[in-house]
Design a protein around this nucleic acid. Sequence first.
DNA 1: CTACTTGCAAAAAATTTGCTGCTAT
DNA 2: ATAGCAGCAAATTTTTTGCAAGTAG
Lengths: 142, 142
Amino acid sequence: MTDDGLQKPIRMTRQRCVILDQLRKMKCHPSADEVYQRVREELPRVSLGTIYRNLDVLCECGLIQRLETAGTQRRFDGNAGEHYHVRCIVCDRIDDIELDVPDEIEQRAREAGDFDIVGHRLEFVGICPACRKARSQNASTN
Amino acid sequence: MTDDGLQKPIRMTRQRCVILDQLRKMKCHPSADEVYQRVREELPRVSLGTIYRNLDVLCECGLIQRLETAGTQRRFDGNAGEHYHVRCIVCDRIDDIELDVPDEIEQRAREAGDFDIVGHRLEFVGICPACRKARSQNASTN
DNA sequence: CTACTTGCAAAAAATTTGCTGCTAT
DNA sequence: ATAGCAGCAAATTTTTTGCAAGTAG
């Protein structure tokens, strides 16, 4: 039998604590390397390998989330709760967004395909306030 | 002014044709390397660099799409039209799914945040028929 | 013609891994 | 005590790039 849902306890090492802490503190959605830079300030001797390994572990036990990103780098999210994201198409900044989507949508997906649907991921794309401003200034100078 | 929406014409080279063709033929959502393998059957001398460059070009002019994937590899979609995806959490296969989502959802995102929302991306996660079967066989032997 | 594209090979970027000594439980 | 973890460094994997020669329009 597979052990879906049962997460085996993980050892809370200093490194894991700091990684988790930093990730939760960062409101952005950092790459492994950005996490590394932060953690290094507290633990100068951590290795990038440790960061990667632990980000994986933390994802697996559900304490953090891996983001789906189009770029070549993975990004992580310290907020493990269910929520959605908005991505700025100009600067690639990603914000959280609070929104309720009826579960009915998964029901419809069930009917539309032949998968056993267990969840969904929704991301909005748009232009963030900063880029909007830059853009309108740009337009007026044209 | 930015030239959003205006796509400059691209040269239709043999390579681009074949890449586009193969991508459209493949119903799965292949990585650059998988595209490379396919294209190689027709054009044994193409280079992987060419594949990457052209997948980028084709994305930019809107003929194909880049998928958002959590893995370490990018994936591409020969279907440039608006549609959604279902991803199998077991084997990572990605299928298209036909589903209408009311535009109202973007309106709600507009209200919930401060971005200018221009679109959204919705992905379902679930278990594909093949993996479901494998899994139930597995369960019965336990 | 000539600006854009290709193949090739080398570089860069991102992630993973083997190993030996350390540490949380 | 000991299974699991860290640090380090080297290897892999994935993507990008410089350049000289080829080609579509």
